[in-house]
Amino acid sequence: MSIQIEHLQYVYGAGTVFEKQALRDISLTIPDGQFVGIIGHTGSGKSTLVQHLNGLLRASSGDILVDGESIYQEGYSMKKLRSSVGLVFQYPEYQLFETDVFTDVCFGPKNLGLPKEEIEARARQAMNAVGLDESYDKVSPFELSGGQKRRAAIAGILAMKPKVLILDEPTAGLDPKGRDDILDMLADLHRESGITILLVSHSMEDVAKYVDRIIVMSKGSVLYDDRPAGVFAHWQELEKVGLAAPQVTYIMHELETRGWPAARDVTTVEEAKDAILNALHRK
């Protein structure tokens, strides 16, 4: 499923004293099957942008085309849009409202009108994928720890099997193993089913490791749109807009200033290790 965003603008509270332009003239094309990272300072418009893609917010101006069709044309089914574009919110608490975790995860597929066995099979599979076993079935969402709530919220969306999966900071609050598990699970899902994934994240290390392409937002506009090494080459500019490069990128810069061979494309631990061993002729 491809998404095309054309000259998108969004203003919160138009006409009030709190009027705030959150998105300015955004144009982007996201081809089918890409794994895209979206980074940007707090308040840069990431959540606002992704909430447009499943119709939660309606553009003040501009257009969004899904598989070539404008979602704003008359008669376009928002319900269909929401079943094919799944969004995991930034604060998972808002997404959990059923009496127990299993029922909660069933909510999405149930709304799709699927048969009961299919709903439950999907819910089980989704819970497994996020590391919640059967012992969590009957637990109230309110009794979960922060990280457990997040897993449950992700499972609820996964169970709908969307064609485009958008996750707004899915790993915030997860322990490192949980973070890696979720991201590995997304990478597998992406490889195996070829779905499009948009990952909003504040972890430069994570986006560097997993995505093909990074979109950098700043003050409501797109600042960079490139592969990870291309984006993090701008580390000085990134710092001016609240961001940074992964820690290993800084290590390679430090080594370069100390006379080591330049290795400016390095954004992951694996790449840094290779570059350093190469420089020492240990490879």
Partner: peptide
């Protein structure tokens, strides 16, 4: 309790 979970790198 996880005060920086939702912050950008500079905010953190």
């Amino acid at each position: 309790d996880e005060p920086t979970a939702m912050l950008d790198p500079v905010g953190r």
